[in-house]
Nucleic acid binder design. Sequence first.
DNA 1: TTGCTAAACGGAGGATACCTCCGTATAACT
DNA 2: AGTTATACGGAGGTATCCTCCGTTTAGCAA
Lengths: 196, 196
Amino acid sequence: METKPQDRLRKPRADAQRNRERVLEAAKAVFSVGGAEASLEAVARQAGVGIGTLYRHFPTREDLFEAVYRREVEQLAELAEELKSEPSPVEALRRWLRSTVQFVATKKGMMAALAIVMNANSELAAYSHGHLTRSIGALLTRAVDAGEIRNDISADDVLRALIGMCYMHDQTGWQQSVLRLLDVFVDGLRVAKGRA
Amino acid sequence: METKPQDRLRKPRADAQRNRERVLEAAKAVFSVGGAEASLEAVARQAGVGIGTLYRHFPTREDLFEAVYRREVEQLAELAEELKSEPSPVEALRRWLRSTVQFVATKKGMMAALAIVMNANSELAAYSHGHLTRSIGALLTRAVDAGEIRNDISADDVLRALIGMCYMHDQTGWQQSVLRLLDVFVDGLRVAKGRA
DNA sequence: TTGCTAAACGGAGGATACCTCCGTATAACT
DNA sequence: AGTTATACGGAGGTATCCTCCGTTTAGCAA
């Protein structure tokens, strides 16, 4: 009687985890191609699960957007962690920003999905905001401590600028434009420019 | 027989124009509150027209987004026109950017709708891009000609930065953040900073 | 292994929203 | 006032959403 079902939780079932993973993969693919309004039944079909399974794991469309997005954010956080070993703080910041641009470049319809879920779910905004802000914050603090950039700009500010720059990413040449903007922005951040 | 119906077009009916206007007003309101996925039947109800009327004027959801958005863009272009009389070119640019932030601040769910339509309809992107680019371009050229800012940044670049900065506009304090970013950006644009 | 049970699966089906179609109403013109 | 092109509105067919529940299966204990 030492293992009453209420007390000791069972190990989660393997098929549940597997199916959850399958649905996430399928969702990423389907939304990237078909945009935010793609059919959820199509996602279930692509994942090879029943529609009921999809809804059990992700009760709303937004939940699904959310789960897909969370993964992406975590990958960006890892990248920031790696860049801490870059010698020049300003260059580390610049390179993270540039890498993020590349990262975003592979998505497409996901941006609209992101816009929807950000609008509806402020908890997710907080989550991703937290992750990304911490990533940027670490890079930023190093650069400020080294006296290389001004200290009145927060990580939130940088994040906002970055996301914004990637926003209109469906026009030709957008990558060049964004990379140029990032340089302007980083220049604007620098101290010791001998201002008049 | 001098007025065959094929040759001489009738004046468009007054009720048609009126209803179109009503639907646009209703759509702006409904999408702002309910987001991009709001029911079109709700829009028709709010406008006081039949669902058929809505669809005749705007065959797809995207067409409706588009029409609403076009108006907004035109208003911004008018603002730029007025600002041409501002004495300091850099200040004119800065003020247009700031005013645009205020302008965006009144919308809400419209941003997600915008993301969708921009993603799907590149013609609209071109239209708004053209309008806004011309607006910014005029302000920018004045400032460059006056030797006040660097000349290797295009109006496209500025537009991209601006839209981006307004992107995450659902977080508290976003306006302060954006206004701060704009100052950084304009600082980054300035020439004659005595670079090391 | 075998049996037991909680957990997960899947898809039928009611509800909702989309969108077309066409009979009715009405503004513009003579 | 009569004529006609134009617009209106909503019924209804279709697609998608999402819930509910009978069936299946993975984990656990003996």
